[in-house]
Every structure is written in structure tokens, then in C-alpha cells.
Design a protein around this nucleic acid. Structure first.
Lengths: 139, 139
DNA sequence: CAATAGTTTAGAATATTTCTAAACAACGTT
DNA sequence: AACGTTGTTTAGAAATATTCTAAACTATTG
């Protein structure tokens, strides 16, 4: 590990973000760990635990910047809390309504053969499929 | 309109909810107006405008009770704000990211021919498809 | 019409996210 | 390596949305 930060520095520069101390630290936490889902609060806690001093406001700023830059994706499955996903490839999600967990579904495991035409004057941003499941038998 | 409330009274009783003044008034606003999408705040404003005195807490309670009873559906497309839909039939949504508007998509206009198998020990609650569009050309 | 069980309420509390403006840090130029 | 510019970070306040609390109220049953 002679140059442990060179990769994240390059990645940040590629998307036009200054490689600041906080952004590098957060990027390293996020992208060294493989695909996963997390909330802003969770990342903030994880950073604190790893000895990285960063404010929650910066965590939010950074997550939004990363999302806009396309190196992170926001997943909306629950009102009142945002989740993010380090997997930015084309895929979908299971959402466990009881435990609030997310599980990736590979794009090839869902096939949509028919989609409606878009409303006039709009551009397609994304088609999100969320399969909501419960952990417990229903009453 | 000799008995304008008899229908909502019956409907509430059918789903095991007492037909109280507030629930009847809100149900009437919601179900006499045809399919539409709204937030808790919007319904509260609409009720106030119609001379119905009801607290925001009751609006939230009522929306959750109606949702649990299956006569209303919650749509999650945006973190930080919940939307509800008086259309409880099988269908999907367009979401206009700029204007935060929703538009129904009939179930027959989306065909999914392949779905992954559910994770062990889970029950399917719902498959939600959200087609996110922007109103404006992207930069 | 009294008892009781369920409902409504205002306001406080909670949770999450965004804002503000001052301090700070990165980076190209000297 | 210091400078200036511009972009970034920060703590704390503010904004937003939702849920909680416990007291008052109301629908329903007997």
C-alpha cells in the first residue's frame, strides 16, 4: 500500500471534484468496500469510527456531489430517509419492508418487454423497479 | 344528494373503521374526486379550504389507516415527502423529477416477462415501477 | 343515557436534510 | 514556497416532514 489514495484521487479528478481530505476519505470508505447500500447517517458513523473527522453536512454534500457525478446512485424506497448505492450499473432492488434492507437485482434478472411512451416534452431519466417484500407472514 | 354520506359511511364500515366526522369528510374529499395523487399537507389544506376542521395529525392517522385498509395506496418516489394515490388498482407511475408530479401508468402498458425469485422467507408485497422523467433538457 | 373503547387534538418531540456565513484548504501563478 | 482565488468544510441554526403524547371528545353498545 505505497500509494493507497492514488486511485480515489484519480477517480475524483476524473469527475471534476477536488480531491480534498474529506472526499478522499469518504470515497475510500465507499469504493474500497464493494457494492453496498447505506444512508448518510450510516456513512457518517462509519467515518467517525474510522477516525475520519467530517461533519454530517459534508457527508450530505459529498453524497450529492458523487451522485451528480455518477459515481454513486440514490435509491428511493422509503420516505423520510435516503439510501445510496455504490453500484451505479443498471440494476434494480428488493426492499425488505420490515428490516429496511436493500438487495440488488441484476438488470438481466428482470425483463420489461413493454413500456409506455413518455409524456410530451420529457426525457427519460431512469426506470426503477422495486420489489417490496415482507420478512414476516402477513396477519 | 339526499344521503351524500351513505356511500362513504358504508365504505368505512366495510373496512372496519368507525365513520367519524373527520374520516367521513376526508373520505368524501378523496373518493368523490376520481383518481388523484396528493400529499398529507395538500389534503389538509384542501380540507381547511372546504371548511372541514381537522388537525394535520388526524390527516396522517387517517391516511395511514386508509392505506392499511387498502382503500388508499402510498407511493414512494421522493425522500422527504410521502404521496398517496386514490387509485389502488394494479398500476405504475411516471414521476416528473422537476415538478414533483405523478402520472398513472396502467398495468397493461408495462409488461414484465421475467422477475427474480424472492429471497428465502419473504413474501411479495408489491412490484413498483417508477419511470423517472425530467421536464427540461439535460445540460 | 351511561360506560367504554376508539378518535381527535394541539403542541411538543423526533428525524432527516438543507442552509448560512465564517474559517479553511487546494491549486495555479508567481 | 508564499499569494490569491476559488472551492470546500464546518457548527449550529433552520427548515421540512412526520410521529408522539396525553387530555378532551365522540361513536357505539348495552
Amino acid at each position: 500500500m505505497q500509494r493507497p489514495y492514488s486511485q480515489v484521487i484519480d477517480r475524483l479528478k476524473q469527475v471534476g471534484l477536488r480531491p480534498t481530505r474529506q472526499r478522499m476519505a469518504l470515497a475510500k470508505l465507499l469504493f474500497d468496500a464493494g457494492d453496498h447500500h447505506f444512508s448518510a447517517e450510516q456513512l457518517h458513523n462509519q467515518a467517525s469510527g474510522a477516525g475520519i473527522r467530517v461533519s454530517l453536512a459534508t457527508v450530505y454534500n459529498t453524497l450529492h456531489q458523487f451522485t451528480k457525478a455518477g459515481i454513486l446512485r440514490e435509491i428511493i424506497v422509503s420516505s423520510g430517509r435516503s439510501y445510496f448505492d455504490t453500484n451505479t450499473s443498471d440494476h434494480h432492488h428488493f426492499f425488505f419492508e420490515d428490516s429496511h434492507r436493500l438487495l440488488d437485482i441484476d438488470a438481466k434478472d428482470i425483463t420489461i418487454t413493454k413500456l409506455p411512451k413518455l409524456p410530451e416534452g420529457t426525457l427519460l431519466e431512469r426506470v426503477d423497479v422495486v420489489i417490496r417484500v415482507s420478512d414476516n407472514p402477513k396477519s
